[in-house]
Design a protein around this nucleic acid. Sequence first.
RNA 1: GACCCCAUCGUCUAGUCUGGCCUAGGACAAGAGCUUUUCAAGCUCUCGACAGGGGUUCAAAUCCCCUUGGGGUCACCA
Length: 442
Amino acid sequence: MTYASEVTSMIRVRFAPSPTGNLHIGGSRTALFNWLYAQAKNGKFILRIEDTDKLRSKQEFVNEILDSLKWLGFNWDEIYYQSQRFALYKQFAQKLLDEGKAYTEKLPDKEGEAIIFKVTPQKIKLNDLIRGNIEFEAETIKNQVLIKSDGTPTYNFACVVDDATMNITHIIRGEDHISNTPKQILLYEALGFKVPEFAHLPLIMGTEGGRLSKRTGATAISDFRKIGYLSEALVNYLLLLSWSPGENREVIDINEAIKLFDVKDVNKTAAAFDLDKLNWINNQYLKKEPLEKLNSLIIPLLIENNYIQKDNFDKNYVISIIKLFQARLSTINDFLDWANFFFLKDIEIEEKAKEKLLSRDLSKEFKLFIERLGMLEKFDIETIETSFREMVKELGLETKTLIHPIRAALTGKTIGPGLFEVIYYLGKERVKERLEKWINKE
RNA sequence: GACCCCAUCGUCUAGUCUGGCCUAGGACAAGAGCUUUUCAAGCUCUCGACAGGGGUUCAAAUCCCCUUGGGGUCACCA
């Protein structure tokens, strides 16, 4: 059943980034909640590029923002550029001028005339969807510039004209805009526009409190992508900042989130960006990721880093190695560091591995093990393990006193997959080579 | 400084609207252990919070007030 109200008032939300920088965590969360609300309510998600500042706005940032939004999966229904709407802003400013609600002013150091809105003293009430009633006193607000001397509109004015003419029903934006809201409400009323609903989202803070900085997570979304985060994981993490699906759920599919989401349920409290939790969520997704998709992400990386040659590599081998690491990866790029010994000829042995595992002279044991390996008829993980354990028993040693040093000599690391898998996938020759190299080094 | 917003484990949160089921639940991190082989995967366990003070009430994490603390905004930037 459909109700008349649903037919006549479709929900329209917007995300309005300014192309003066990359899309960051904060902006993408605002975009997410807008997009999510549109999906949840069967409404429209509008993208508006706020490029009125000709000096600071850059096409490359527009491209970066659009790419990031697409990568995150936030597809928009309509897109507008404020730089193409200057005539419209002028027209509405002129209207306020004609009605005596604004005046012009020329500053000595400026070329043209600015158009300025007269703020009349009054109480301004805002009923925020998340925060409830907020009251402001207009006395604390100065007269507002609408059109600057250079003919470009100010943020608050362009924003109101656009939100009204684009029929935006719900303005969902960061808490930093709360104090812009009374100014904007005054403009809506002066222009005779219907005031939309407002929902002010809490801000995302850095790990140590305070603003997000480069160190604390203000990394561009495109960088998270490069580092090797999955978009689904990043979106899932963002979802958990200031909102919760309830029932102790952490990992949640976006389609399920759409069913559960409502702006009204968003928290009022600011959340700190926590890279550890993002990594954990990314790992959860990486573990479940189909191998095919993982391959398509990792193989190009391997080629790029000269681990393998573009048209000349054993795909099945690469896939086997990927499987070995899949459950442990926090990011795709971890694979590069963790699995390098399977692809590179010369491996560097970490200092930690030398100190902890290779400080004792084990050349006798290493030589014996090379010999045993050479005699193996079958070369599979099980046979390697059996033979190794027999040898260790004969030598009267504990398994771990030999397992870890050998792995360290083969991989250069103190941690990694199981020894027998490592030996199997490295192959007899390379195992022999690396163990001998270590023996001779001593 | 003025105005505005916010306040549950170190962090993200459930519970707050509609007081009792909360000696406050989950997750990340941390610590301990298990996995006849590491851990950065898995399993088990531990640590750990209602900012403080007043009210209201038979009863308050939940409602009200104050204090404190954190954050935001005060541009011819967006």
